[in-house]
Simulated assay, not measured.
Amino acid sequence: MGLIERALSLVFGGGRNALAETVEVFRENAEKGAAREVTLHQATLAQFGKEFRRDRRGWFDRLMDAVNRLPRPAMAMGTLGLFVAAMADPIWFAARMQGIALVPEPLWWLLGAIVSFYFGARHQAKGQAFRRELAQTVAQVPQVVDNLRRLDDMQAPDAPDPSAGAGDNPALEAWRREAA
């Protein structure tokens, strides 16, 4: 018994399993792999949880967030409202525009600066994406011009009949003879 015990202690002795360690070089330990997978899954869920967590903020912070979302839609809807008002009641609209004519020039400069700073950041962020899209669109111009030229040629009264070149297609000629 002692000989077998010593031989087994060489392979499995000292709290180590030489056979399992050798196999793990070539094949992943399923139990340890599952533990790593669980750890990764938990870390991913924790990160998503932090990203979408709602902070407990006071009513004032929520109010300021709501107010910060208003200017762009208010300006767009207000401009459309001016067009509707000009069409619905031109006299009322003209009276309001006379009042705007009395606004001093420095106040217009101030309004321009405020609007420029407000929309400037958005313009800068969106500007690069727009330039890339514009470059792609401009690159398609020659093909579009060629396609338009072809379409114009198809509409021209002296354009050749597309079926006129069918003389080199014996099957089509036979079908036409049968149909006639």
Rank of each mutant, 00 (worst) to 15 (best):
A85D: 08
N147F: 09
R131K: 11
D61I: 09
Y118P: 00
R36D: 13
L80H: 04
P71Y: 03
D61L: 10
Q143G: 06
A156S: 10
Q128V: 15
A135F: 03
R177P: 00
G78M: 05
Q124E: 11
V84F: 11
L110Q: 07
N169Y: 12
F52H: 08
G49A: 04
L19Q: 01
T39E: 14
S9A: 15
P157R: 02
G13S: 03
S163N: 12
D55L: 12
F12P: 00
A88E: 06
L70R: 06
L172V: 15
Q42S: 11
W108S: 02
P71Q: 06
G127M: 02
T79M: 13
T44I: 15
E28M: 06
P170A: 14
Q47R: 14
E178W: 14
S163L: 15
V38G: 00
Q42L: 15
D89W: 03
E28C: 01
A76L: 15
A101S: 13
L80M: 15
Q140R: 08
L134A: 12
V103T: 13
M97N: 06
Q124F: 15
A34W: 07
M154C: 06
L10Y: 08
A7C: 09
A159W: 02
A125K: 12
S9K: 08
V25M: 03
F60N: 06
K126P: 00
E28F: 02
L63V: 10
P160K: 01
R69F: 10
P157A: 07
R6V: 10
N17G: 02
T137A: 12
L172C: 02
E173D: 11
D65P: 00
L107K: 06
A113C: 09
K50H: 07
A7L: 14
L80C: 06
Q155L: 15
R6Y: 03
Q155T: 10
G2F: 04
E37C: 02
I114C: 02
L102H: 07
L102R: 13
M75S: 08
M75E: 14
L110E: 08
D161V: 05
E51Q: 10
Q124G: 11
D89E: 13
K126C: 07
H41I: 12
E178I: 12
P106A: 04
F26M: 08
V141I: 15
Q136A: 14
H123D: 09
F130Q: 02
A18H: 01
D153H: 03
L107D: 12
P157Y: 02
M75K: 04
R122C: 09
E178G: 09
Q47M: 11
G120R: 01
E51F: 09
G78K: 04
K32H: 05
E31N: 05
W109R: 13
E31M: 09
A179S: 13
A85R: 09
G120T: 01
V38Q: 07
F119C: 05
E105H: 05
L8D: 01
M154W: 07
G165N: 07
A30E: 10
E51W: 08
R132H: 10
G2E: 09
F26Q: 01
R16I: 05
I100M: 10
Q42P: 00
L70V: 15
G165C: 04
R131E: 07
P160V: 03
R16G: 01
T79A: 12
I91Q: 09
P104N: 06
V141P: 00
G165A: 11
R150D: 04
H123C: 11
A94V: 08
P157G: 03
Y118A: 09
L82T: 14
G165W: 04
R149K: 12
A164W: 03
E133S: 06
A171I: 15
